[in-house]
Design a protein around this nucleic acid. Structure first.
Lengths: 350, 350
DNA sequence: CTGAAAGCGCTTACAG
DNA sequence: CTGAAAGCGCTTACAG
C-alpha cells in the first residue's frame, strides 16, 4: 500500500490498467476470475492490484450488471434478544453468500416501518426479510417496496390482504403445535385446570397458541372455563400484576400455559408475592426459551424456537428466491421444541 | 402504480423525462429539490414520478457524486443484548441522517472480522463503527479498511499500534469509574474484604475495571489480598463454578465487585449452592444492568451503561466525522451510573 | 429556467 | 488472449 497514493483518491481499474500496461477490460476479467486471461497477464495484474491497494467498487459493478449484493433485514424489535439472534443468523448466511445485510429497525411502529422500507428500497436490495411491526398492513408494505423486490415474511402475518401479498415467501413458527405440546405436557403431569395466561387476543401468534392449547384440552376431554383465559400485555410487569385474576374464581387453575417466557417469569413473580411456590404449588410453561429461562427459580419449562437457526433459514429461503424468482411462493413452518425443566415437573397440589 | 409497467423493468429518470417531455437533467433537479426548476415543471414532473412509481437509485447517484449513504456497523457479538441495543441506537440515528446501516457480526472472531470488514468495505461505506472482536489487532483492521474510510472504535481498544490507528475516533465506557463507584458503595456499607470477581486479566475492560476497584480500595486505605482476585470466563456458568475459590483462604471476602452482570448472576448461583444467601450473607455488584438484573433474587446492584444511548452517540460521532474529515480525532468516555438494588444493601455478615 | 454532454467505476459483447 | 466501445442510472457544470 503506497500511503502517499492511498491518502489521495480511490484506486480504480484505470489505475491498475495503466500501472501494468493492459486495458481496463482485462483487469476486470482478472477480478472476476475469467479463464480467458493469460496466466502471465493475470499474475502481473494481481501484483499491481495488491501493490496499489485496490478496493473493488461493488456498487459500480452492481449498477453495470443490474444486480444487487445486498438484502434488507427489517425487524420490529432488534433490542429483543430473540430478534438479535435471528439477525445474527441471517447475517451469517448472507455473508457466506457474498451479500451484505442492510439493517432496519422499526421498533414495533408501522409508521417507522414505512419510512424504513422506503429508504432501504432506494439502496436496491435484492430482497427483503421483514418481521412486521404490530399493526403493519399489506397495502402499505407493498406500496413501499413495490412488486420488483422479493419479500420474505417472518414471524407474523400482515393485516389486510392483496393478490401480490400471496406471492411472498413466509417463515413462521409453529405456534399452535408449541402451545399444544406444552398443554399436553401439563395434562400428562395430571393437571386438568390449566389456564392460558398472557398476551392480547388480537395478535396472530397469541391466536395460534391459544388454538394449540384448546386443541390439546379438547383432545383430552377437558372443558376450558372462561376465567382460565387471562389477557395481559406480553411483558413481565403486566403479567405479574395480572396474577390475581387467575385466582378470582372457584375452580382456580393449578397450572398455566403462558404466552411467552416474559409472561411466565412475571407470573412467577406474582405467584411468589402471593406465597404460592411456582414449580411446587403451581405449574408453568413459557414460550421462547430466552437465556434467563434456564436460570430462573425454578428453571422454566418452555418452547425453544432457536432464533439463530430461524435466521439462517430465512436467509436461505431468500437466497433461493433470488436464484429462482419465478418459483412458487413457499410457506415454511419452523418446528419448536419442548424443553422440560422444573417449573412444570409435578402433579397438581392445590 | 401501473402494475403492467412495474412488473417489467425498473423506472429510471429517462422514463420520467420522456413521460412528461423534459430532459433527464430537469427531473434530477426536481428530485434533488433544486430551486432552479419552474413551479409548473416541478409539479408536472412530480406527478409523473408518482404515476410511474419511480424509485430513486441511490447507488447510481452515489457513484456519480462520489458520496456514500451507508455506514458499516461491525459488532463482536450481536446476539448479546448489550450490542443489540447498541445497534438499535446506531440505526436510529443513522436512519435520521438518511444513512443506511450495513451490518456485520464477527462473533468474537478476529478472523471473521477481517473477512467481514473486507466485504463491507467493497460496498463503500462512508464510515465504520467497529466494536472489535477479542484479539483483533490494529494492523489487520487497517489493512482491511484502508486509510480512506473513517473508523469509530467502540467499547475496546485493538491490540498492536500504528500511527494511523491514533487518528481513529473512540467511544469507550468509563469502566474504571464504574468499578470504583461499585467498590465505594460496598465500602460505605461497611465491607472491607471485597473481592474482584470474574473476567480475564488480558481484556482491556477487565483491566480498567480492576484499576477502578484498586483505586477505591487504596483511597479507603484497605489492602487488597491476592486471593480476592478470581479470574473466570465472563459467563454465568464459569462464574458459578469458580465461586468456591472465594472461600478457599482465610480472610474470605464478604462482598464482591463482579466484572459484569453475567458473572454476578453466576456468583449468586454458586453462593446459593453453598448455602450462602446473596444479598444477606454476601454483597454483590455487577456491571451492565442487563434486563435480568432488576428481576434476579435478590435484584442486582449494577452499573447502567445505557447501550442504546451509546449507539446513538456512536452514530453522532461518526456523522460528525463525515461532515468534517479533517478534524482532530476524538476520544469520548461515556458515563456509567450506579443502580443500587438489594444485592448490596447490607453490612458484612460473615 | 432548461437541455446536451461528460463522467462516476465498473462489465460485456464484439472485433481482432 | 486482449482492447475499444457502449452503457448501467444518476449529477453537474456549462451554454443558451
Amino acid at each position: 500500500m503506497e500511503s502517499s497514493a492511498s491518502i489521495r483518491r480511490k484506486i480504480t481499474l484505470n489505475d491498475i490498467a495503466a500501472g501494468c500496461g493492459v486495458s481496463r477490460a482485462t483487469v476486470s476479467l482478472v477480478l472476476r476470475g475469467s479463464p480467458l486471461v493469460n496466466k502471465n497477464t493475470r499474475a502481473r495484474v494481481e501484483d499491481e492490484l495488491r501493490r496499489q491497494g485496490y478496493v473493488y467498487n461493488r456498487a459500480a459493478a452492481n449498477l453495470r450488471r443490474r444486480t444487487s449484493s445486498s438484502v434488507a433485514l427489517v425487524l420490529n424489535d432488534l433490542a429483543n434478544p430473540f430478534f438479535a439472534e435471528f439477525a445474527a443468523g441471517v447475517d451469517e448466511v448472507l455473508a457466506e453468500g457474498e451479500f451484505v445485510t442492510l439493517l432496519g429497525n422499526t421498533g414495533e411502529s408501522a409508521e417507522r416501518e414505512q419510512a424504513v422500507l422506503g429508504s432501504l428500497i432506494e439502496h436496491g436490495p435484492g430482497g427483503i426479510i421483514l418481521s412486521p411491526a404490530e399493526g403493519s398492513d399489506a397495502r402499505h408494505v407493498l406500496a413501499a417496496v413495490g412488486t420488483q423486490t422479493p419479500v420474505l415474511l417472518f414471524n407474523r402475518e400482515l393485516g389486510g390482504s392483496l393478490p401480490e401479498y400471496a406471492h411472498w415467501d413466509r417463515l413462521m413458527l409453529d405456534n399452535q403445535r408449541g402451545a399444544k405440546l406444552a398443554t399436553q405436557h401439563l395434562l400428562e403431569q395430571g393437571h386438568r385446570r390449566i389456564a392460558f395466561f398472557g398476551g392480547h387476543d388480537d395478535s396472530s401468534s397469541v391466536h395460534q397458541r391459544l388454538d394449540g392449547y384448546r386443541e390439546a384440552m379438547h383432545e383430552a376431554g377437558v372443558d376450558v372455563l372462561p376465567h382460565w383465559r387471562v389477557e395481559t400485555a406480553p411483558t413481565r410487569m403486566d403479567a405479574a400484576r395480572a396474577t390475581e385474576q387467575l385466582f378470582a374464581h372457584d375452580a382456580a387453575p393449578t397450572a398455566a400455559v403462558c404466552y411467552n417466557d416474559a409472561v411466565a417469569l412475571g407470573l412467577m413473580l406474582g405467584l411468589n408475592q402471593r406465597g404460592i411456590k411456582p414449580g411446587e404449588d403451581f405449574a408453568i410453561t413459557g414460550f421462547d426459551d430466552v437465556a434467563e429461562a434456564a436460570f430462573s427459580t425454578p428453571p422454566l419449562t418452555t418452547l425453544a424456537t432457536d432464533p439463530r437457526a430461524r435466521g439462517r433459514q430465512a436467509a436461505q429461503i431468500l437466497l433461493a428466491r433470488l436464484r429462482n424468482p419465478q418459483a412458487d411462493a413457499t410457506t415454511t413452518v419452523a418446528p419448536v421444541t419442548l424443553v422440560i425443566r422444573e417449573s412444570s415437573a409435578h402433579p397438581p397440589r392445590s
